[in-house]
Design a protein around this nucleic acid. Sequence first.
DNA 1: TTCATGCTTAGCCATACAGCTAACTATATA
DNA 2: TATATAGTTAGCTGTATGGCTAAGCATGAA
Lengths: 113, 113
Amino acid sequence: MAKHEPDLSLLFHALSDPTRRAILTRLAEGPAAVSELSAPTALRLPTVMRHLSVLEMAGLIASSKDGRVRTCAIVPEALLPMRSWLDEQRAIWEARLDRLEDQVMKLMQERGT
Amino acid sequence: MAKHEPDLSLLFHALSDPTRRAILTRLAEGPAAVSELSAPTALRLPTVMRHLSVLEMAGLIASSKDGRVRTCAIVPEALLPMRSWLDEQRAIWEARLDRLEDQVMKLMQERGT
DNA sequence: TTCATGCTTAGCCATACAGCTAACTATATA
DNA sequence: TATATAGTTAGCTGTATGGCTAAGCATGAA
């Protein structure tokens, strides 16, 4: 199994900021212009721009410019790598839990109760 | 719906580092001592300690000290908040996709093809 | 008691991050 | 053409992060 997960770090890092998660949630309602996204944040536009570029670098959003307005939209499939990592981990972690449970069961049987 | 997700940032941040993800994967095989965890990393012990404390702060691992050896173990339920965030997002994002699809369908119908 | 082992703390360094202001570009609109 | 609007770029600041070394416990073995 190759370790082709070079973007997981970018993805997790992008999601580690509340402002960026808020932007994503906002964008889930539909595409929006940069200034629309910055409006509810109490942050300055350049700061929001930076967040947007982090999100875009991570592949979580895409943007295009029409006239002087740039419209941003989510990229739904971007969460897939994260989801599969989570699923992998859950699989291993649960397997480990099961083994542990088995051991406990065995212990209890050996004790005769 | 209350926004009780104060730890999501910690969680995502903890997972944004490849070394820390590697440690987690390693720990999925079973508990391990600090030095066991540092061995395969090519990093110095204090550095690994720092990573461990980040993981522990995020609630992803737990540790206990027996004698002079500290043993770390994963906390399986720690990924749950992340999982539910992901599920929420997916729900919204997919709904959005569906709406978009509907619009396209309607457009095509209006065009008569 | 002495020594090795395993972890811990303190503190240094370079880089990255999140915020800002100020100045600039480009497109509408009057 | 002049002006307002929407983004963009450049560059500054303080803090956080990830790495290190060196020195300091504390415990187990000799």
